[in-house]
Nucleic acid binder design. Structure first.
Lengths: 236, 236
DNA sequence: TATTTAAGTGTAAAATTTACATAATAAGTC
DNA sequence: GACTTATTATGTAAATTTTACACTTAAATA
């Protein structure tokens, strides 16, 4: 087989920034790296791209290994290619961010990885340029979630308005008036009220809602403006 | 030097989607590919990443080769890694889009490339997955320009409000009321009115404006909402 | 049945966005 | 030098959206 002559070839990696929400704060999933260099240090879940898989396939495979989950919301974010980012040898890494329902996540049975959830506010130091990847991922989801309803990916199938509001407030590190928030959210028509209530956090209980999946997919690319005055929130 | 054992290595490329504006429509710059496969076919300007350069450096170098320009607005867009995207051998390509002032662009003296501007509406077929890259790049600049003032990168240092409006109208394939457009644009405070007029397109002449560079850089990350009702414009 | 705690809801004011039409400029022409 | 012509420049009222703000309801428990 003819190949390009005189060109360099590099190891290609993917790294996944996996976000979850525990009802209070935004979290990311980290593992203790299983091989050198930096073996044992906290790092993102990543791996090398195999000869016959696409970048998407590689990240999906790796995410499945880490969380046991299929069908996860996964988005390519940025490719990091600084020549010296990996001290072992030049490695180009495409970073993906994933949003999962933290309660669907199942602890892996095998012992290769020891994943743990960390609050994005209190995270260990990460290897290589992964700190930068995580910061970019946080900016990315803030940016995207201000315009598109991606944060629902972090919630279980049924959720309450107070839960949703806490999620938005924690992602944007702000507080939102609950009357205005519920008007805004309900005006999208994305939510379907259920008859059951969640009584775990109050005596009165809060109504559960489901996503209207049809509208969710149809409107996903529209600008929704969930966040009041995004100008002040995004550009930090 | 120790390297990762048993991992595959791939050729890494960058491809640049270079946008320009001729006063009427949005254009992109294409070259006739100089080597096999697909030699002679129209393609994006691209090249291989060298051992000691970053992806940004590679794309800047290639852009300089193509346009003769430094300091061009350049943004990483997406990495394309389908195993069979390049029939010669597996190549992973990171696509960047660039916005340049078409009048600053200088025809290259050397004969390696024969670049030509094509309207995005009437473009030749491109090689590999470059058609997809161009479509994604168009979506990207529409998306970004609805919120950030990137389109000024396509204009010369001084420009008129009618020119600016034609640019926005052509990017979004729409018409905008000129009273509302000028209010919207001037309200950002980004423009500084000059005393001279451009008399090339009317007897009366239209005032030139400059960008307020300080505000431009300061507000670049803010959401500016240049486009009325973006919901209808983006999600095509 | 009284207390407690979180959920749920409405309205008026302010700000923003939209729709829409006419006057001004300056070159070229008669 | 008055008139024609093409394009630029500008203002306002109505509609819509966003914001600010406080009390009632539900249901468990004491």
């Amino acid at each position: 087989m003819i190949r390009y002559a005189n060109e360099s070839r590099f190891v290609q990696a993917v790294d996944c920034i996996v976000f979850g929400f525990d009802g209070e704060t935004l979290k990311i999933l980290l593992i203790q790296r299983g091989f050198e260099p930096e073996k044992g240090k906290w790092s993102l879940m990543g791996g090398f791209v195999k000869p016959n898989e696409s970048l998407e396939q590689a990240s999906t495979r790796i995410l499945k290994q880490l969380t046991g989950l299929d069908g996860v919301y996964l988005e390519q974010m940025h490719t990091f290619g600084d020549p010296s980012r990996d001290p072992m040898e030049r490695t180009i890494s495409t970073a993906y961010f994933a949003l999962i329902d933290i309660h669907k996540y199942e602890q892996q049975l095998n012992n290769d990885y020891h994943p743990e959830w960390f609050s994005v506010k209190r995270m260990p130091k990460l290897i290589f340029d992964q700190q930068e990847m995580v910061e970019m991922a946080q900016r990315s989801i803030r940016y995207k979630a201000a315009l598109h309803p991606i944060l629902f990916e972090l919630l279980p199938k049924r959720f309450t308005l107070p839960q949703l509001q806490i999620l938005y407030e924690s992602v944007y590190n702000t507080t939102i008036d609950k009357r205005n928030f519920s008007k805004r959210v309900l005006a999208t028509g994305l939510l379907i009220k259920q008859v059951e209530k969640d009584k775990s956090s109050s005596k009165r209980g809060a109504y559960y809602y489901h996503l209207n999946m049809q509208k969710y997919y149809a409107n996903f690319q529209s600008f929704l403006n969930f966040i009041p005055n995004p100008t002040n929130l995004i550009s930090q």
